[in-house]
Design a protein around this nucleic acid. Structure first.
Lengths: 310, 310
DNA sequence: TTGAAAGCGCTACCAA
DNA sequence: TTGGTAGCGCTTTCAA
């Protein structure tokens, strides 16, 4: 094994000087630098990353727990934000798939405890917050959801305001017979809760919307298209631009006039359709989460969704 | 920082004995073990993973380069196979997203060179094979494709035989007016090439099939459904069970009799539809790739796709 | 500008 | 069964 000592010996300089060259530190004569670099080249030398990490006490690695291999658009944009931020800071991202498995998530927490990486980001979690918080002393932990625990950082997107803005805009357009599309119609779903609250605030408690659930793709929306015709609607508030596409196709095929249509996630398809959308800032969420993972202070960062009229 | 020396001192035993307890080595008296474990517990001690790795010279980590965040079914099954195999062998998987970026892939190769992990698996690559092969001296590298280089292991699925079997079966059913669905109709696509070859071997050079490309989801298939009606078909050979679903919906809506339909990837949807499919063994590909990443010898492992009649 | 030496925390060999 | 100690390969402080 060719190590730093060997380079020192062959170059005629000390281990310290070699280390300085490796890390681009000042106070090395150009002569020394050249000679050392030359020997490194000859021996195909590359510093051992593990040794650097052990010695410096920092891995420049951040673990990211994701729920699954197959990720919806929200997650992939989030991951892209994380990845870009990591590259910007010269960090490496470890993607840690949890498959919703609590034990696997605990294993990753143990890895943090064992200093396999500096910080850990939960984009999603199955394990309880108390357990997660108990590992906070071993490194920064960021959860991409609203969390109160003072030991954890919390970075998430507040969608309430943009949602109300959207509903108000819809109302201003003179629309009032509205369908809401959801992945899950379930009080455990924060999306469902906040959308319903915003709706009621704008349209009142009495005016019931048509609610469709079990919809997460354009395909789903298309298949449930019939349900949309059961009521005389003038607006469809969908849960994704992709979903909206399915709605459009359904109406086109029936040769029916399309009601006002709202998308979400600001996807490419929404742009093409030219429909208003709500940008839930997943990419920014990723970037901010990463920055928070490096930060010294625990913090709660709330991003705001944005209603985009087109 | 509480380290192995501190545990040794406080327990009254030596560093060696503490190490033995950590690693469940024999030749430690029950008394010593208990005392040491007790002190570890009290100090909330956890061995430093980096130090263990540096000292033992093995990280028990394998890097896996994937092209993108958003993965088609083939990749997610592959990753599940990798993950399960890794867990079985008590290894951790590092998912390394490349975004088809050559420099990023080179960066991962440098990480291998720097001993950040023991082996590297390319489920997909943009960087050229020569470059990859030049890193083989730093650790096992497995490519999930057909590769000749003696420095690289190659694990892939041969789909030719199953494809011919399928076409022969189709022929036996008395079908001959066939449509083939592809993601890319491009000689660079191995799927396209092997399917065409198998087709020609069974049906002859003269009998031209109808070819549709740009199809990777059920949605795509549905949208291109019209093209299927232009010719009088008696069999549609699709490139995925999901894709087949889109075809089914198209025919159902037109109230047309469905031709013989073949799926691929053995997905859940295909099972529900009850259509024959070709299992391309992605999960097994993952498992074998991982095993090969640990193996001492460079090897080529060829799995066989399987035609499943239902 | 340079180098010696003390860490970083652990493993494993060898001697007792 | 136990312990001493020499690594693993690098960083960093301090003195020269």
């Amino acid at each position: 094994m060719t190590n730093i000592r060997k380079i020192a010996k062959l170059s005629g300089y000390s281990v310290s000087s070699v280390s300085r060259v490796i890390n681009n530190h000042p106070h090395v004569s150009e002569e020394a630098r050249q000679k050392i670099l030359q020997v490194m080249e000859e021996l195909d030398y590359r510093p051992n990353i593990l040794a650097q990490e052990l010695s410096s006490g920092s891995t420049r690695r951040v673990g990211v727990v994701i729920p699954n291999m197959t990720l919806p658009p929200y997650f992939s944009q989030l991951l892209n934000g994380l990845l870009d931020a990591a590259m910007d800071h010269n960090y490496t991202l470890l993607i840690l798939p949890s498959r919703y498995d609590i034990d696997l998530e605990k294993y990753y927490l143990e890895q943090l405890r064992g200093r396999a990486f500096d910080s850990l980001i939960f984009t999603s979690r199955s394990v309880d917050l108390e357990t997660i918080a108990s590992y906070a002393k071993y490194g920064n932990i960021v959860c991409c959801e609203e969390v109160q625990d003072p030991n954890l950082s919390s970075v998430y997107v507040s969608r309430t305001h943009a949602c109300k803005t959207a509903f108000n805009w819809i109302k201003d357009q003179g629309k009032s017979r509205i369908a809401l599309l959801f992945t899950r119609k379930d009080l455990k779903s924060s999306t469902y809760r906040l959308t319903m609250e915003a709706y009621k605030e704008v349209f009142g408690e009495k005016k019931e919307p048509l609610i469709l659930d079990g919809i997460s793709t354009g395909e789903d929306a298309y298949e449930q298209g019939d349900s949309l015709l059961e009521q005389d609607l003038d607006c469809i508030f969908s849960n994704g631009d992709d979903v909206a596409t399915g709605v459009v196709r359904y109406y086109q095929e029936k040769n029916l006039a399309l009601p006002l249509l709202i998308g979400q996630e600001k996807q490419l398809t929404g742009e093409v359709l030219g429909i208003p959308t709500i940008d839930n800032k997943s990419y920014q969420l990723g970037q901010e989460s990463f920055k928070q993972a490096l930060s010294d202070e625990k913090r709660t960062i709330i991003l705001q969704s944005e209603f985009i009229i087109r």
